[in-house]
């Protein structure tokens, strides 16, 4: 049986907890609840943030108090069935691996007793689930990376990692949408912008999508280059 708890996050948000671990069933429950709330869109609803095991609902306390929001959310959770979700959107992200874009590719390979080409092959074979977006605009928390290419974070984080950089940290892989400091092992870079503030939705990826990485050459990278950072 799944556990559910609804707790306040201050006076203007409520956290619905739908499980305890990162797993496909909890992810489906998160997505179902997200859809139910958005379909109903009560007048006190402001926005929601889906995460690995939670959906946090921001609301207007001038229009409903916590008890009302809690009661309504509890009924939505109770009514969650196991109806199939629409098939996830599949997004292909071209990546130019190694070289100046992936200075840590060799280290990831050595750590796992592989060649660089094998790391690229394994990384680009995966179908990754976007469990949630957080940390930075459009930054995907991806599930499904092969443990054969796992690698620990760098002891000293880099001061600035360019937008579009693809990295590995532990069992996770991800793409930096904006230039930020970070401690991930860098294996490549995409010419595609993940944060597009001029569009709505403003990011390439949303929770629930499936991501596939596609190896490209430096020439293709240059041809597809969208300009990196948001501005």
């Amino acid at each position: 049986m799944q556990t559910t708890a609804i707790t306040p996050l201050g006076d203007s948000a409520a956290v619905v907890r739908l499980g305890e671990t990162i797993d496909p069933e909890t992810h489906r429950r998160v997505r179902r609840l997200e859809r139910a709330i958005e379909r109903a869109a009560p007048r006190w609803f402001v926005e929601l943030v889906p995460a690995f095991t939670t959906v946090t609902v921001f609301y207007d306390p001038m229009r409903a108090d916590f008890a009302q929001v809690e009661g309504w959310l509890a009924r939505q959770v109770e009514a969650l069935g196991d109806e199939p979700l629409p098939p996830p959107r599949e997004v292909r992200i071209p990546v130019c691996y190694g070289g100046e874009f992936g200075p840590d590719l060799g280290e990831v390979a050595a750590h796992n007793g592989l060649t660089e080409d094998e790391v690229i092959f394994i990384h680009s074979q995966g179908a990754y689930v976007v469990y949630m977006i957080g940390f930075a605009p459009g930054f995907p928390y991806l599930g499904g990376m092969s443990e054969r290419i796992a690698a620990p974070r760098r002891a000293t984080p880099r001061v600035s990692i360019p937008a579009g950089t693809v990295g590995i940290a532990g069992m996770q892989t991800g793409v930096y949408p904006i230039s930020t400091p970070g401690g991930w092992q860098l294996i490549g870079r995409t010419p595609i912008r993940l944060f597009r503030p001029e569009q709505d939705p403003p990011t390439l990826l949303s929770a629930g999508d499936i991501v596939r990485f596609e190896p490209i050459s430096r020439e293709t990278f240059d041809a597809l280059w969208e300009g990196g950072d948001a501005r």
Binding site: L48, F58, P137, G138, F139, P177, P197, P201, P202, T203
Partner: peptide, 8 residues
């Protein structure tokens, strides 16, 4: 407001 789900 309204774009936190996309990390904004």
């Amino acid at each position: 407001v309204g774009h936190q789900r996309h990390g904004v």
